[in-house]
Simulated assay, not measured.
Amino acid sequence: MTIHDEAGAVRPLTLAWVGQHLDIGERVVKTEALHGGITAEMRRLTIGTRDGGTRDLVLRTFVNVEHAENWLNRESGALTLLTGTDVPAPGLVAVDPTAAHCEYPSLLMTHLAGRTVLDDEGLETRVALLARQLVAIHALRPAERPPGYVAWTTADTVVTPKGADAAAWAAAIDVIRKPAPPYEGRFLHRDFHPGNVLFDVTPPSPAGPWITGVVDWAATSWGPADLDVAHCSTNLALLHGTAWGLRFAEAYEEAGGVLAAAASERLYWQVLDGLAFSGDVQLIAQPWREAGRTELTTRAVEERLDTYVTALMDTLG
């Protein structure tokens, strides 16, 4: 009998599909909802093995999501590419991007050890690890490039937060009215941030924490390294304060990464990503509160975003 909590229950057709991709004699013995995702339902499946042991898989399901097929195709392609590389990522078990077999488009993958860490303590060490990991991702040279990046906002769709520095935001919006700067394309995660990186932090060891996995490859794209760096920078600014958002680009270069040579070009990508958060603050902040950062209310995150965007514009002098 499968044991599950109500939130973790797997739909019948999907459960049957999972069963088709298990080894002979294996079965799902427990399901558990995983929290932290925004666009997809995530479940950990405990698989009973023939020798009486267990192993874990992760089921990712997109329910009523417009771009599910595209995202699952990108993710399955990325997980296949990453097999055997220095980038720790889940292994692909099976994918049903069009819901030909499942109730909804789904992907089954291996489970990675570790957990996300969103606390301020130990952040300096983790920022360096994040930077090194992102440099390794950008060093990948796939035989077939993923689709080109898509900007997540435009000058005409930015939502300026209530009480924000109107002059700074107007100047920032003007920055992204200009054409995108030229860039050398790189393999991008496109949603790289602390919530998509797993760490081993316990028990404390002299070597310190290390990264055990990078997850959520559904937005994999081809584009400028600056865009991935900018996205992680914005997340760090909202989670830990503006200084950390500004610090990440330096950490990336210290780890061997190469960014746009001109400050104006770097600013374009930083602002493009920062402004993209303005309409989704409530959606973004909720998983952080669920993870224990209860002080990160929607209003608190809006204020941090305003501070960060204003700081970016101050770099223009």
Results as ranks from 00 to 15, higher is better:
residue 2 T to E: 13
residue 2 T to Y: 05
residue 3 I to Q: 11
residue 3 I to W: 08
residue 4 H to Y: 10
residue 5 D to H: 12
residue 6 E to S: 12
residue 7 A to F: 10
residue 8 G to V: 01
residue 9 A to F: 10
residue 9 A to I: 07
residue 11 R to F: 06
residue 12 P to F: 05
residue 13 L to K: 13
residue 13 L to E: 11
residue 17 W to S: 02
residue 23 D to H: 15
residue 31 T to S: 15
residue 33 A to E: 10
residue 38 I to T: 15
residue 43 R to T: 14
residue 44 R to A: 12
residue 46 T to M: 01
residue 46 T to Q: 00
residue 46 T to L: 04
residue 49 T to I: 12
residue 49 T to D: 10
residue 50 R to C: 04
residue 50 R to D: 05
residue 52 G to L: 07
residue 53 G to N: 11
residue 56 D to S: 05
residue 61 T to P: 01
residue 62 F to E: 01
residue 68 A to I: 04
residue 69 E to C: 06
residue 72 L to F: 06
residue 80 T to H: 14
residue 81 L to P: 00
residue 81 L to V: 02
residue 81 L to E: 04
residue 82 L to D: 04
residue 82 L to I: 09
residue 82 L to Y: 06
residue 86 D to Q: 14
residue 86 D to V: 15
residue 87 V to N: 01
residue 88 P to T: 15
residue 90 P to H: 01
residue 94 A to S: 12
residue 94 A to N: 03
residue 100 A to H: 12
residue 100 A to C: 06
residue 100 A to S: 12
residue 102 C to G: 13
residue 104 Y to K: 04
residue 111 H to I: 03
residue 113 A to S: 03
residue 120 D to P: 00
residue 121 E to L: 11
residue 128 A to K: 15
residue 131 A to N: 01
residue 134 L to F: 13
residue 136 A to I: 04
residue 138 H to S: 04
residue 140 L to C: 09
residue 142 P to G: 06
residue 142 P to F: 08
residue 146 P to L: 04
residue 149 Y to Q: 03
residue 154 T to R: 09
residue 154 T to A: 12
residue 156 D to S: 06
residue 158 V to E: 02
residue 159 V to T: 13
residue 161 P to A: 13
residue 162 K to M: 04
residue 168 A to M: 14
residue 169 W to Y: 14
residue 170 A to L: 13
residue 170 A to E: 15
residue 171 A to K: 03
residue 173 I to M: 10
residue 175 V to L: 09
residue 176 I to Q: 03
residue 177 R to W: 12
residue 180 A to R: 06
residue 183 Y to D: 03
residue 188 L to E: 13
residue 189 H to I: 03
residue 191 D to Q: 02
residue 192 F to G: 00
residue 194 P to N: 07
residue 196 N to Q: 15
residue 197 V to D: 00
residue 197 V to K: 00
residue 202 T to E: 08
residue 202 T to D: 06
residue 207 A to P: 04
residue 215 V to Y: 01
residue 217 W to Y: 07
residue 218 A to Q: 10
residue 219 A to R: 08
residue 221 S to W: 00
residue 221 S to A: 12
residue 223 G to T: 08
residue 227 L to F: 04
residue 227 L to Y: 10
residue 228 D to R: 02
residue 232 C to N: 11
residue 233 S to R: 08
residue 235 N to F: 06
residue 236 L to Q: 02
residue 236 L to H: 02
residue 244 W to I: 01
residue 246 L to Q: 09
residue 247 R to A: 11
residue 250 E to G: 01
residue 251 A to W: 07
residue 252 Y to R: 05
residue 258 V to I: 13
residue 260 A to E: 10
residue 260 A to S: 15
residue 261 A to R: 15
residue 261 A to Q: 12
residue 264 S to H: 11
residue 264 S to P: 05
residue 266 R to Q: 08
residue 268 Y to R: 03
residue 269 W to Q: 01
residue 270 Q to C: 15
residue 274 G to D: 15
residue 278 S to N: 08
residue 281 V to M: 11
residue 282 Q to R: 06
residue 282 Q to W: 09
residue 282 Q to T: 14
residue 285 A to W: 01
residue 287 P to R: 03
residue 292 G to K: 09
residue 292 G to R: 08
residue 297 T to I: 09
residue 299 R to M: 11
residue 302 E to C: 05
residue 303 E to A: 11
residue 304 R to E: 11
residue 304 R to S: 12
residue 307 T to F: 07
residue 313 M to K: 03
residue 313 M to T: 09
residue 317 G to E: 14
